[in-house]
């Protein structure tokens, strides 16, 4: 199996739009103490795309998402959101600029009610809260039924819906999904992924971090593969899907 990994096919990808990318990451390096979590990572996300970020655990996927969202301060490199630099260490600024992270492990506010969770999602907006709540309950009827229940009592799938619904309350232009399938039954995962596809059709640009490579490649337009903090492959998802995924990311490119 000597085929070359598909690399830098970005320029040929048909989904690239002419105007500036929604997210442009250039040679990003992030360290935690002695650990270099990301090394010189660059990527772009065009308007209306779903871009997958794949790779084994510890590859730096979550760090990349959190850095794009402004949680971490990179050592070098920068993140541009709609052409404006994201300030490291001030996630509220990126959030106000229309970015939402649906974090790994969902991070809902367990002791607060479902409705309060949703209201926090709309904190960066001033108004039309009522309509937004109604829209959320229309989209996720189960959340409507449980609106005054504390969020911690929801099932895993319901919590993931709440996390996405919370993000949508802000009418974001871009959503970063960090492992939305984590710990969910396959049937629920399908629903969540359908939802992500549907939101893309509504014009929401999406970045999808997934360990489940097949799912991510089926859904995304393009994808990047992250290994040990660097991008090891990238290209159209349909192209990436043709090569041996196990080799690509379970085996760090080597074979037995």
């Amino acid at each position: 199996m000597g085929e070359q990994l598909v690399t830098s096919s970005f320029s040929t990808a048909s989904t690239v739009v002419a105007d500036q990318p929604v997210i442009a990451v250039t040679s990003l390096t992030v360290r935690y103490g002695a650990v270099t979590a990301l090394r010189e990572v660059s990527l772009e996300v065009g308007r209306g795309e779903i871009v997958g970020v794949l790779g084994p655990n510890g590859a730096g996927k979550s760090t990349l998402m959190r850095t794009i969202a402004g949680v971490h301060k990179p050592v070098t490199g920068q993140v541009l959101l709609e052409g404006r630099p994201v300030v490291g260490g001030a996630p509220e600024k990126a959030a106000r600029a229309g970015l939402r992270l649906v974090p790994e492990g969902r991070r809902i506010f367990g002791p607060l009610t479902v409705e309060e969770n949703l209201r926090i999602g709309s904190m960066s907006r001033g108004s039309t809260l009522k309509d937004d709540l109604e829209a959320a309950y229309d989209r996720f009827p189960i959340l409507g039924e449980r609106r005054s229940q504390s969020a911690g009592t929801l099932s895993g799938g319901e919590q993931q819906q709440l996390a996405i619904a919370r993000a949508l309350m802000a009418h974001p232009t871009v959503i970063l999904y960090d492992e939305p399938s984590l710990g969910l039954a396959p049937r629920i995962v399908d629903q969540i992924f359908e939802l992500i596809a549907h939101l893309r059709d509504e014009g929401v640009t999406s970045v999808l971090v997934e360990q489940n490579a097949r799912l991510a490649l089926d859904l995304s337009d393009r994808a990047y593969v992250l290994g040990s903090g660097s991008i090891t492959a990238s290209g159209k998802s349909s192209d990436l899907a043709k090569i041996d995924l196990a080799q690509l990311y379970l085996g760090k490119g080597a074979q037995r």
């Binding site: 969202a69 509220e92 926090i120 904190m123 960066s124």
Partner: peptide, 23 residues
């Protein structure tokens, strides 16, 4: 609104900031 923000922040400050709430 502010009370809700404070309750959320006491639970999880980073996630609250990710919702656009200023720390």
């Amino acid at each position: 609104r502010s009370g809700l923000q404070m309750r959320a922040a006491a639970l999880d400050l980073t996630t609250t900031r990710l919702q656009g709430v200023s720390a």
